[in-house]
Design a binder for these strands. Structure first.
Lengths: 210, 210
DNA sequence: ACCCTATTTCAACGCACGTTGAAAACCTGC
DNA sequence: GCAGGTTTTCAACGTGCGTTGAAATAGGGT
């Protein structure tokens, strides 16, 4: 509530918007996708209305149906394109000595999410917990592209268990830092977190679990 | 969509439901609370409609307003009554040698959430991520009753940081096990998790973070 | 220039939501 | 057994949603 979408692009003329095809440079399909990513991130699936997305894109709500066929389809197209380039991220993680993978994980995770403010992280969690269809998609996605690559790179027993333990610590750090915001972890600098958390990740990766 | 609430309690008589006060034994206020907890857990705040909650309770939707004053108030009453008795839980955690607090944390956490299926845990997360008002309440609650007591019991530097690190690992384990359900962690038995996670918790509690 | 088609806005539909006021059924105290 | 209050259902309201069909406007081909 109490939040209005700023749509005015300056002109305060009272004439209705012109219809018909836009001037050359515009691409409403791309504008809708960008707006959808923003609004889905801010409000979650149910909270993000087609009308607000269209308003953000500066376009009529009917365009969502015309270009994507409906809200559901737009959501699929928009969200499944959101995830950061996970493969490149895993490359960076695995590139280097195995003894410092934990440290690189902490640095990369914070390096990715801190600059964009953690909002998208909270949105991802919101999607996972509130929209079963997308939860399944994201689950499969993470398991296949992230965990599987790490697992096959490690030459240790119980690789799958180690990978999920790893995920639990990273995910938990994200929850505390970006979603529930417990201090002082939420405001701690990278070096502090690396020194505190990396050794525990390292133990999950290559240490003795049992 | 495509999901109907089964409300029929057997009789297929076409006569409308009788009005007026119920027969003696019933307590619709309690029935609404129970139904609300279930439906809020299953669908989240926005997804849980007043009508579906009332239907689950076998009662008219207007009862929500009559007994609680509205959906918002019902949500507050229902959700804020969910949390397990945290104080008793902290007692159990701190009762014993400091060297095995980590192990007791894992055992107690799993002992609490596993029997109730993890659904309420997912609901808590859903509440935190989708409803700011409740997020604040829960945040204050956890910080004051859980973290503060552990912090004052520990005689170590950086107690607050240690407490939040602890929370990150426990919370993350809950997310992986109950919400996103990554295997094999989601199905691992308690002993496996104790051996894997407890040492890391113990390091956060009493180890060297520097 | 002219038609044709793609693009866009507009107005309206149907639906589901939370909420409300009044009527009906029940219980309690006298 | 009747009066008064409590509990419950019912019907309706207003709102906002996603979606739809038609009208309006622009560009592209010939």
């Amino acid at each position: 509530m109490t939040h209005d979408d700023g749509v005015n692009t300056g002109s305060d003329q009272t004439e209705p918007k012109r219809r018909g095809r836009r001037a050359g440079g515009e691409d409403t399909k791309a504008a809708l996708l960008a707006a959808a990513r923003e609004v889905f991130v801010e409000r979650g699936y149910e909270g993000a209305t087609v009308r607000s997305i269209a308003a953000r894109a500066g376009v009529d709500a009917a365009m969502v149906n015309h270009w994507f066929g409906g809200k559901e389809a737009l959501f699929a197209k928009a969200v499944l394109q959101v995830p950061v380039d996970i493969n490149a991220l895993v490359d960076r993680l695995l590139d280097g000595p195995d003894e410092s993978i934990g440290e690189r994980m902490v640095r990369n995770f914070i390096g990715v999410w801190d600059p964009i403010g953690g909002g998208p992280f909270a949105a991802m969690v919101r999607s996972v917990t509130s929209h079963d269809q997308v939860a399944d998609v994201l689950r499969g996605f993470f398991v296949q592209t992230l965990l599987k690559r790490i697992v096959t790179h490690l030459d240790v027993p119980d690789a799958e268990l180690r990978a999920t333990l790893l995920a639990s610590q990273i995910f938990g750090m994200g929850m505390i830092r970006y979603v529930v915001r417990f201090e002082p972890l939420a405001s701690a600098d990278v070096e502090t977190l690396v020194k505190a958390i990396a050794p525990n990740l390292q133990r999950y990766l290559t240490g003795d679990l049992g």
